[in-house]
């Protein structure tokens, strides 16, 4: 197979699998959380309710695609597309296995951070363009929350970069051949995990949508597939952050006996379930508490981590 053809196959394959995983995630989350909450979850459409998601997608596609007359139309339409695109783009740099991966950028990590910053725009613009009070409050919260958590998200990864000596995700995985970074970078791992949850605005950091307070926050006015894209964007985010944690701290595809792709899948799956567990168990902090937590605790911790890592490297 010639090189362009091969790339095309990989791109289409990764996109298809990513979408499939995302769809499976929705079903999985609903089933798992239902189990934890003494319920059954979707179990009517297809075997084990597996086709529920197909039904939901059909429903979303056939619903009235309503743009409120008071909304800022172009931005309103653009916002949900941005979140999904930015999320999917990030998958380009993820090394799934030694030979599988769309592109190996030498600044792969920075590319991921850049794309996740793009996601913030989507939420903020969606909240702003809706021109409704609840959306605005949600957008405002999103702007504050995601911008501040972005700061130490980047900082928490600096230690990993310093140890691996590269921004390329492939190099970072290779650098973990003799020990996963979760051990020397335990602090960085915890900070990144928390920042990752905040970045995907999932419970307990779902303040931008906070359905018991702001109805649906920034996407209150969205319906049909525009809402669907925000929804998919959220699950893309979960898969992405889980994949990044696996790559950066848990040695990516590395592992004995099983094929590399399986290892990558298992580790990523574990963290996705962790996301569901968080949603099933924790209440939501208040907006100002969240900010204080970020700036007064997480940021110093991330800095401390970088400082210690730097001192360690300098001493070596």
């Amino acid at each position: 197979m010639t090189e362009p053809w091969r790339s095309l196959v990989v791109i289409v394959g990764v996109l298809a699998i990513a979408l499939l995983v995302i769809m499976a995630q929705v079903w999985l989350e609903r089933r798992i959380i239902a189990r934890w909450q003494d319920r059954r979850g979707p179990n009517r459409v297809g075997p084990f309710g597996l086709l529920q998601l197909i039904a939901d997608v059909i429903k979303l596609f056939t619903k009235e695609d309503w743009t409120p007359p008071f909304a800022d139309r172009p931005v309103f339409v653009l916002a949900p597309a941005v979140v999904m695109t930015a999320g999917m783009m990030s998958f380009a740099v993820i090394p799934f296995a030694p030979t599988i991966g769309i592109v190996d950028l030498n600044i792969g990590l920075l590319f991921f951070l850049a794309m996740s910053s793009m996601g913030v725009y989507s939420v903020v613009l969606g909240g702003w363009a809706s021109n409704s009070k609840y959306s605005l409050l949600g957008g405002m919260r999103a702007a504050a929350q995601m911008l501040s958590y972005e700061v130490f998200m980047g900082l928490s990864l600096a230690g990993v970069v310093a140890l691996a000596g590269s921004f390329s995700l492939r190099d970072i995985v290779e650098a973990q051949r003799h020990g996963w970074f979760i051990v020397p970078q335990a602090l960085g791992f915890v900070v990144f995990l928390i920042a990752g949850i905040a970045e995907t605005h999932r419970l307990p950091f779902d303040l931008p949508e906070a359905e018991s307070e702001l109805v649906a926050g920034y996407h209150t006015e969205y319906s049909s597939m525009k809402f669907g894209m925000f929804f998919v964007g959220e699950y893309v985010g979960i898969a992405l952050v889980s994949a990044m944690i696996t790559t950066l701290f848990l040695g990516g595809w590395l592992g004995p006996w099983l094929p590399p792709l399986a290892w990558f899948g298992i580790k990523t799956f574990f963290f996705m379930c962790f996301f569901y567990l968080m949603r099933g168990s924790l209440p939501r902090p208040r907006y100002d508490q969240l900010m204080a937590y970020g700036w007064k605790l997480m940021l110093p911790l991330a800095m401390l981590n970088l400082l210690v890592t730097g001192a360690f490297l300098a001493a070596r």
Binding site: Q37, R39, P204, S212, L282, P283
Partner: peptide, 10 residues
């Protein structure tokens, strides 16, 4: 209302 989803089901 505080954001914890599960206790309601219990």
């Amino acid at each position: 209302d505080i954001g914890s989803l599960s206790p309601l089901f219990y």
